[in-house]
Design a protein around this nucleic acid. Structure first.
Length: 606
DNA sequence: GTTAGGG
DNA sequence: CCCTAAC
C-alpha cells in the first residue's frame, strides 16, 4: 500500500525536519524543490500516494502514525496545488494542507503560502476530511496544459506561481503535458529538456512523438492529441474518466524521467549504448519514422529506452513481498557500470533511524533473453532478517544473475553503505554454487569481522545501536552440505542487555514477544527469539562465573564485557522466575545453582 | 505467531 | 544466530 519516496541527497534531512516525528504529514517532502535531485527516486502507489517510509520504518513510529498510516496520503500532486487544490486531507485536517503547500510552493515566499493555505482551507470543506482514499478534485484540472512544476530540473528556479508560464519551460511541467498547443520552438525546448540536447527536426508531429515517447517510454504514441500523466500516455478524451488515479505521482515521475535522460546523454558508456540500441531494434520498439534525423533518432531511442519498464520477473525478484506496494514503474538509472555516484547519493545517510532510504534504483546490463537490456535494480533497506527461499527466484538465468550479483556487490562494497540484506543475501545465494562459495565467503567475512569486533570492543562504552539499525552485518557460513548459510551477527551492546534484563524483570522471562514489543521497540533487528537466546546466554554466564570469580571484566575474551552487576541481576531475576514457576521444588536446577549465592539474593527484588 | 531447546 | 518442534 505504501510507497516510498526517496528524496535524495541534500533533502534527505528535510523529511524529518518537516515533521515525520512530530506530526503526521509524513510525506511533506522537501521544500527545497530547486534541488535537481530531490525527486529523482520515487515510489508511488496505485493511488498516487507517496509514503516516505517502508513498513518497517513506519512501525517504528507506530504510535504516531497509527491512525494516519492508512488515511494519510501525502499530497504528491502538490504541483497542481497552484491552481488545483488537492483536497486530500488527513484525518486530523490541517497538517496535510501545510505539507502540500510546502511542496508546491517551494519557491514562493511565505506570503504566497499563506494565501494558498487560506485557499485550501476554504476549498476543502472539513466534511471531506475523512474521505480516505479519493482524489476527488483532481479531475477538474486534468485537461489543462502546462501545469507549472516546481522545477526539479535544470530550470529549477521557476518563479511562476500560476499556470501562466509563458514559456514552455519543460522543467516546470507537471504530471500533465499537453504538447498540442506548443509551437515548434516550444517543442524544441521541451525536447531539449526531455533529452538534454537540441534537435534539428522541424516536424511538429515528430517532435511531439519523440517527447511523448521520451516521457512515457511508450512506443505507441499517437501523434495527435494526448496528455502525459504520470509517465503514462493518456488520451485527452479519457481524462475525465478514472485515470486520475496516478495523477499524484506525476511530478516525480516526470522529474525522474527527464533527469534520467539527461544523465543518459552525459554518461553513456559505449558498451551500453550498443546493447541498448541493438536490443531496441530487435525489440521493434522503434516504430518511429526513420526518415528524420537519424542521429536524433538513435539517441532518442536510447533515451526512451532508458526508462523502460522492468520486466515483471525482475520486479518480482527484487520486491518480493513489496509487490503490492510497488507499481513497478521504477525509473532506471543511466549508469549501469558506473552507478556509483547515484548510488552514493541515494544512500546518503539518513539523519536518524527513521530513515527514508526506501530504495535505490540502479541498473545493470543484463542479458535476459539474449538482449542487452538495462534493468533497474531496486533496493530497499531491510533491517530484519533476510527472507528465506529467495533462491528459487534466481535460478532462471544463472549467468545473468551472477553478473548482477557482482555488480551489486561491487557497488556496495565500494561505498560501504548499508545495504539491503535481503538483496544481498539473494545475491549471495545466487552465486553460491559450491565452487564459487569459497571466494564469496572470504570476501564477506572480511567485511563482517571488522564491524563485529568493533561492536564488541565498544562493549562497555555503550553505543546505542538504535541509530544505525540498517547496517546489519552479513556473513556466510559454510555448511557441511556444501552450501553456505547466511548469518548475520550483531553484537549485543550493554544497553541492549540492560534493556533485556529490565524487560525480564518487568514482564518475566518467557514473555519475549512482550519484551520485544515494549522494551525493544526501537531495536527492530532483535527478534523475540534473539531475546530469548540472549537471556539464555546471560543465565549461563551469570551462573557460570560469578560464584567464585566475580571479575566479569577480567575475562579472557574481550568479547564478553558484560559487567558483573548485570550478571548479578540476571541471576537474581533467574532465581525469582524459578521460584515463581517452581515454588515447591527444592531440587530444581536453578534453585540448586542459586543456593551457592544465597548471600546475593535479595528477596522481593523487582 | 510464540516459545523452548538443540545445534 | 539458525532451525525446528511444539504449543
Amino acid at each position: 500500500m505504501e510507497k516510498v519516496v526517496e528524496a535524495e541527497g541534500s533533502d534527505e534531512g528535510k523529511f524529518e525536519e518537516t515533521g515525520l516525528e512530530t506530526s503526521n504529514f509524513v510525506l511533506s517532502s522537501p521544500k527545497n524543490v530547486t534541488d535537481p535531485v530531490v525527486y529523482k527516486l520515487v515510489r508511488v502507489d496505485g493511488n498516487g500516494r507517496l509514503v516516505p517510509a517502508t513498513d518497517d520504518e513506519l512501525m517504528e513510529v507506530e504510535g504516531l502514525l497509527e491512525n494516519e498510516k492508512r488515511e494519510t496520503h501525502i499530497v504528491a500532486d502538490t504541483g497542481q496545488a497552484l491552481g488545483c487544490i488537492s483536497n486530500e486531507v488527513s484525518p486530523s485536517g490541517m497538517p496535510q494542507l501545510e505539507s502540500s503547500e510546502g511542496l508546491s510552493q517551494s519557491e514562493n515566499t511565505e506570503a504566497d503560502t499563506e494565501k494558498l493555505s487560506a485557499y485550501l482551507e476554504e476549498t476543502v470543506p472539513s466534511g471531506a476530511k475523512n474521505s480516505s482514499d479519493d482524489h476527488v478534485t483532481q479531475s477538474g484540472r486534468v485537461g489543462e496544459c502546462l501545469k507549472p512544476l516546481d522545477g526539479p530540473l535544470e530550470g529549477g528556479s521557476s518563479t511562476s506561481t500560476g499556470c501562466i508560464s509563458s514559456k514552455p519551460d519543460f522543467s516546470k511541467l507537471k504530471g500533465e503535458i499537453c504538447l498540442d498547443n506548443l509551437s515548434i520552438k516550444e517543442l524544441h525546448e521541451v525536447f531539449k529538456a526531455t533529452f538534454g540536447r537540441d534537435t534539428t527536426v522541424k516536424d511538429k508531429l515528430w517532435l511531439k512523438r519523440r517527447i511523448a515517447m521520451g516521457l512515457t517510454n511508450s512506443c505507441d504514441v499517437s501523434a495527435t492529441t494526448f496528455v502525459i500523466k504520470d509517465n503514462k500516455l493518456v488520451k485527452k478524451d479519457n481524462e475525465d474518466g478514472f485515470n486520475n488515479v496516478n495523477l499524484g505521482a506525476g511530478k516525480e515521475h516526470l522529474a525522474v524521467a527527464v533527469e534520467y535522460n539527461e544523465d543518459l546523454l552525459n554518461n553513456l558508456s559505449s558498451q551500453i549504448d550498443e546493447h541498448q540500441t541493438t536490443s531496441e531494434v530487435r525489440l521493434g520498439n522503434n516504430v518511429v519514422e526513420n526518415n528524420f534525423a537519424s542521429e536524433d533518432l538513435a539517441a532518442d531511442q536510447r533515451a526512451a529506452k532508458r526508462v523502460r519498464k522492468p520486466t515483471k520477473r525482475y520486479i518480482e525478484e527484487l520486491s518480493e513481498a513489496e509487490s503490492k506496494e510497488y507499481s513497478g514503474r521504477s525509473i532506471a538509472s543511466t549508469k549501469s557500470i558506473g552507478f556509483r555516484p547515484l548510488s552514493s547519493k541515494a544512500h546518503a545517510r539518513p539523519a536518524r533511524n527513521v530513515s527514508l532510504e526506501g530504495r535505490t534504483v540502479i541498473t545493470r546490463l543484463d542479458s535476459l533473453g539474449g538482449f542487452g537490456i538495462q534493468v533497474p535494480c531496486v533496493y530497499r533497506i531491510r533491517r530484519s532478517r533476510p527472507r528465506k527461499n529467495v533462491t528459487a527466484l534466481l535460478k532462471f538465468h544463472p549467468s545473468g544473475m551472477g553478473m548482477t550479483a557482482t555488480f551489486i556487490k561491487k557497488g556496495f562494497d565500494v561505498h560501504g553503505s548499508q545495504m539491503d540484506n535481503g538483496s544481498m543475501n539473494k545475491v549471495l545465494e545466487a552465486k553460491s554454487t559450491p565452487e564459487q562459495a569459497p571466494e564469496q565467503f572470504v570476501a564477506e567475512s572480511k567485511k563482517e569481522t571488522t564491524p563485529t569486533d568493533m561492536g564488541q570492543n565498544m562493549g562497555l562504552k555503550y553505543v546505542d545501536p538504535s541509530g544505525d539499525t540498517s547496517d546489519d552485518n552479513v556473513v556466510t557460513v559454510p555448511t557441511a552440505k556444501g552450501g553456505i548459510r547466511r548469518k548475520h551477527h550483531r553484537a549485543w551492546t550493554l544497553s541492549e542487555v540492560m534493556k533485556l534484563v529490565d524487560g525480564v524483570s518487568k514482564y518475566g522471562a518467557g514473555r519475549w514477544s512482550e519484551i520485544k514489543r515494549l522494551a525493544f521497540a526501537s531495536y527492530s533487528y532483535r527478534t523475540s527469539v534473539d531475546l530469548k537466546d540472549k537471556w539464555r546466554n546471560l543465565l549461563k554466564a551469570s551462573f557460570a562465573q560469578t560464584p567464585t570469580d566475580k571479575g566479569a571484566n577480567s575475562r579472557k575474551h574481550p568479547s564478553m564485557p558484560i559487567p558483573a552487576s548485570i550478571l548479578l541481576r540476571v541471576r537474581e531475576l533467574a532465581e525469582m522466575q524459578a521460584q515463581a514457576s517452581l515454588p515447591n521444588l527444592s531440587t530444581g536446577k536453578l534453585s540448586a545453582c542459586g543456593g551457592g549465592s544465597v548471600n546475593e539474593t535479595r528477596p522481593g527484588y523487582l
